[in-house]
Nucleic acid binder design. Structure first.
Lengths: 220, 220
DNA sequence: AACTGTGAACTTCTTCACAGCC
DNA sequence: GGCTGTGAAGAAGTTCACAGTT
């Protein structure tokens, strides 16, 4: 049992590894067997040197003068990211966004599957989405326990997100992806990752206006 | 016309300013008139010193010993982010995710409004979502031109995202938010911001497993 | 000849510590 | 006393350049 690498991969690298995994899967499906860092970087939208540095964190398996074996590299990244075994997730809040997430094929192919969908509205409960039936909120804890789900996705309105977070963590969920536009507090040992679609749009718009008006006055 | 500040705000700061804006609006709605950096930072999930540094980029308007005026600070951030005037966006791909985005109230309250929804499926065209009627793809360029939309949101399947991107940029769109799991290439002067929901989940899951198994072997 | 792997320089971001002001 | 604004220190991430390998 040797320790092959100092087991710390920078978070920025992890995010890009997920992108490389997607690109490599696409390349493999297209029949490609080898790929160079330049091609892969271009397809992933990153710098080639940065890509090689990213891969070096997992004790890289490229061949100098040739490139990377597509399938071997994909397997290696999938193993590091833990995308080999599919992980159980529960989703709370089956509004428009929640329904979209429940039905999103991308999760299934990337190592995640939903084992429970929950909504507070009686009108939603009983509906079938993506092969699952929406359950009432009363069943949340029991389902989390029974399925041993470790990941929770919150797509509820902002005003109930914190109490949903409390119930999820209370039931044993250790990681939460939060789409509600509110900052959640969770016990130590629980990761909360916020995804705010409005923030993405605002950053995009700001960069655009900064480019368009490089030296404009802001004082009224 | 003096130049009050070197007009370069770090991108990381811009993203947080959008969060502060959200929190300040919530505070103002709750009747709060002043707030300290500590409180605001806690509500936004960031470090207080970092928040003050962020605000210093816009020639801060806090009062030492007291804090920040909630309404004044909100106005100031909104002006810098350009969130005062509402910007026209078009949305292409009205599947589950697209429909969710079209109906998402969060955009309207943050300085964005959709002026066009487009889908390739005849079954979708003519449907009404969030006050707009879904148009056919043939009408894309004409609508972008007529409305002078500068922001495009792509929520199509991956295999058509690039050609949608080409058409949007060809019609004059300068900023693109891309939800399709594919890397887009766009002409110089056009910003593309990818949002990959699977990547977010994968990063979250990795951090969780890294915490759970700090020194596990990866070699098979 | 081609391409990987990586130390080193560089840039960006974060955190600290404290002076300055109310 | 309490809180802001900011220079300085530190950490993290990115890019470069080139040695090393096939």
């Amino acid at each position: 049992m040797i320790q092959p690498r100092p087991r710390t991969i920078p978070e920025a690298t992890v995010a890009r590894l997920a992108v490389y995994l997607r690109v490599l899967t696409s390349l493999a499906d297209g029949g490609r067997t080898t790929v160079s860092s330049g091609e892969l970087a271009s397809a992933a939208g990153v710098n080639p040197a940065g890509l090689r540095k990213d891969l070096s964190h997992l004790g890289s398996c490229g061949v100098r003068g040739v490139g990377y074996d597509v399938r071997a590299l994909r397997e290696r990244i999938a193993r590091v990211l833990g995308a080999e075994r599919s992980r159980a997730c529960v989703l709370v809040g089956i509004g428009n966004l929640g329904a979209a997430l429940a039905d999103y094929a991308g999760f299934g192919s990337r190592g995640f599957h939903f084992v429970g969908l929950f909504d507070a509205s009686p009108a939603r409960v009983g509906q079938s989405i993506g092969g699952l039936t929406v359950q009432s909120m009363a069943e949340l804890e029991a389902t989390v326990t029974a399925t041993d789900a470790s990941i929770g996705v919150i797509a509820t309105p902002a005003d109930v997100a914190q109490q949903v977070c409390d119930r999820l963590t209370g039931a044993g969920v250790r990681s939460i992806l939060n789409f509600a536009p509110v900052t959640l507090v969770a016990p130590a040992g629980v990761d909360v990752r916020p995804v705010d679609l409005s923030v993405e749009l605002q950053v995009l718009a700001f960069l655009g206006q900064q480019r368009a008006v490089p030296a404009e006055e802001v004082t009224a």
